[in-house]
Design a protein around this nucleic acid. Structure first.
Lengths: 231, 231
DNA sequence: CGGCACGTTGAAGGGCTTCAAGCTCTGTGG
DNA sequence: CCACAGAGCTTGAAGCCCTTCAACGTGCCG
């Protein structure tokens, strides 16, 4: 049956792993399950956040638009990640737009369910605080990088960060980034332009550090890339 | 008596406002009250976070050091702010160094107290989630700015952000930043160099938007500054 | 009043953006 | 099947914003 399948998926997320079966049932009953196609939007910047989402399969990204039309990628999400929870808990408006990087399936939940579960299960609160702490640390790390580092380093960091999120082994120690990733996308993650990303990747490809194709990157020498990110 | 004074200070923080007197007493008994002088450090980057702090009076800042010796200011704290709570709750190491911008008094607490209070008082959890959400939003806003905006805009934003934190009326619609703030400090908040800050402030002073002195800035035309921050 | 940190200003240069033109790949429809 | 449109990518050239280096003011505090 479909519902128990979904329940299994939910149970496998880090956030809900500690919850008893009864609580999971409660979530499944309160939640709506939806699919979304690559390129489609889950919600838009400024929209009131009356619901939040659990990504059960696929990939999504969170983008913020600037007043002068540029887009900045704030996060990439994969299976098990929560999207918009923090905003929904505070009943704010979404600070960005969520776009599907691949066909995805999600579970939609009202924040009230979350609050009541948090009151009943202390472990859940702990997990949420941990999750928020991790996101804040990553955000601060990016601020530090954008403030003090050169474009090369930032692109290298974007690649290593992506590798830890969506990297799959490609044999011979290589790691392929399992996501459709244009030069423009990488630029939005690194705070630069698509031209600079293109030039940088070309240089690295010539040095054998990566191989790059159309919307596709695989890291051949991750050690060299880490060095570039640090120095 | 000193203890009740401190208790009053704690009660006036946004976080603890909703707690009953008994809980506040519990905090006061568990907490240590300390003073710290301008320029001194509360904790250092990398140190294990076994305690967190409530700033009762004064001003502090949180700085991250980069590998190549640069400093990046992550946040400025004033009365009522919590420092290191998020880290302490996850039992991590401090991701930055906390420095006193002015003589300050703080309350030191072990995270265990916080966990037990959060379990007893749901309102506290709500408040903490709200607080973390606000910090995350500010961090994301800075990432967006650093990724897409010019130095001028970022300096203007740093000033307006500081105004909302430590701004005091200086008559005639002017707002004085009540903090010792060197050009270097502003540069660390804006992701630029002290020379560029100096040049920019000089230009703005010539236009009558601000007046700047040694470690001191007052905003004369906050509307013009907001315009600079947006365009 | 002298030392030192803070601040200003100039000049040079470079890293990165911007503009531009052409190329390559992919998917789509006749 | 193949041509073609369009999105993605590459590369070059120009230039500017900003950093970097440097030298000199300036104000504060012992």
């Amino acid at each position: 049956m479909l519902l128990t399948e979904h329940s299994d998926l939910l149970k496998n997320t880090r956030l809900f792993a500690a919850l008893p079966a009864a609580a999971l049932d409660q979530i499944c009953r309160a939640g709506q399950f939806t699919r979304i196609e690559r390129g489609a939007f889950l919600f838009h910047q400024g929209q009131p956040a009356d619901r939040f989402y659990v990504l059960l399969a696929g990939q999504m990204r969170l983008v913020q638009h600037t007043t002068d039309g540029k887009d900045v990628t704030m996060a990439v999400f994969t299976e098990g990640d929560l999207i918009g929870l923090i905003v929904a808990l505070t009943e704010d408006a979404f600070p960005g737009t969520a776009e599907a990087l691949a066909d995805s399936t999600l579970c939609t939940l009202p924040p009230a369910v979350m609050w009541s579960l948090m009151n009943q299960h202390a472990a859940l609160s702990v997990e949420i605080v941990r999750m928020m702490a991790a996101r804040l640390h990553e955000a601060h790390a990016r601020i530090r990088e954008l403030s003090a580092e050169r474009v090369q380093q930032r692109i290298a960091r974007s690649l290593t960060r992506l590798a830890s999120k969506v990297g799959v082994s490609a044999g011979d120690g290589a790691v392929r980034l399992d996501v459709r990733l244009s030069r423009q996308d990488l630029a939005q993650m690194s705070g630069t332009t698509l031209e600079t990303v293109s030039r940088t990747l070309s240089a690295w490809e010539a040095q054998g550090i990566i191989s790059a194709g159309r919307e596709q990157v695989t890291i051949r020498d991750s050690h060299a890339l880490m060095t570039l990110a640090e120095a």
